[in-house]
């Protein structure tokens, strides 16, 4: 049996009397793709935050690449190879998309940074520059590569976050409602980028999303959360025809 890339077991998180997550156990294989859906307040973002260490779960554990990571701080988990985007934008104000990617590469690049700084006066190395250009081309942001992100609209800002999460590349990409605020053209870019990183770079994808058309276009497997519980987990078609899922999330009309 192959080792899962990400595994959570019994994750539970309460905020006061509100149960955000209750005994959530998930396995995500390397290169796999999972959509996490559920009504608002079902605990999707809390699940992300627990996996990334932004909030500390009350019970349960998280393992990445066969190694427990629940005691590591957020930045260490990110360095292990987890890229993430946010439901509400968390871009670096005042920096351009290219600078976003270059600083991320520098951070993920690890050792020898002092020498790079002294010799190169802080400029990105040719390799960093090339990777940044590749990613900008991948998400279609070459024309605004040197514009401060404040000047970008919501859709393109989301693509900057996506590109930033793809630096490395990570082994696991966790996207929190990436399509909210995107127009049709940008949504198409998003789908094709996710397809490409999955198949060309073997990146596993966890996607929280309300747009079921987009989810089904990208993922093989669906996990449905409701009030902090996993109520269904399986191949997309099976889950979508599940009666409990229909009543909790989709409504009977669908």
């Amino acid at each position: 049996m192959i080792e899962p890339l990400l595994e959570t077991a019994g994750l539970t998180k309460r905020f006061g009397r509100v149960v955000a997550l209750s005994d959530v156990s998930l396995r995500i294989d390397a290169g796999g793709s999972v959509g996490v859906v559920g009504p608002n307040g079902a605990g999707k973002t809390t699940l992300f935050d627990c996996v990334l260490g932004v909030v500390k779960p009350d019970a349960g554990w998280v393992a990445f690449d066969g190694r427990r990571i629940d005691r590591l701080p957020t930045f260490r988990r990110a360095l292990l190879g987890i890229g993430r985007t946010f439901q509400r934008l968390e871009l670096f104000g005042g920096m351009t998309p290219r600078e976003h990617l270059c600083v991320t590469e520098r951070v993920r690049g690890g050792r020898g940074r002092l020498w790079k700084d002294v010799i190169g006066l802080g400029r990105p190395s040719p390799r960093e520059r090339r990777e940044a250009d590749d990613l900008l081309a991948l998400v279609g942001l070459e024309d605004v590569a040197d514009v401060p992100v404040e000047a970008l609209n919501l859709g393109r800002s989301r693509l900057v976050e996506l590109a930033r999460a793809l630096v490395g590349p990570p082994e696991l990409l966790m996207l929190d409602e990436p399509s909210s605020g995107l127009d049709d053209a940008e949504r198409a870019i998003l789908v094709s980028v996710l397809e490409r990183v999955r198949h060309e770079r073997g990146v596993a994808v966890v996607l929280v999303e309300h747009d079921l058309d987009l989810v089904t276009a990208v993922v093989d497997r669906l996990v449905v959360l409701d009030v902090g519980r996993v109520i269904a987990d399986g191949p997309v078609d099976t889950v979508l025809s599940d009666a409990a899922v229909r009543s909790a999330y989709l409504g009977s009309g669908r």
């Binding site: 260490r76 890229g83 968390e90 104000g93 600083v103 951070v107 802080g122």
Partner: peptide, 28 residues
């Protein structure tokens, strides 16, 4: 040199967004 270099870039990122910088692996 600090401003142009890694530390300066990381600080600029941190000024922009704490959660964002943690997500790319900056040790705040």
């Amino acid at each position: 040199l600090v401003q142009w270099g890694t530390i300066g870039q990381e600080l600029a990122a941190l000024r922009g967004s704490e959660r964002g910088s943690a997500a790319i692996g900056i040790d705040m």
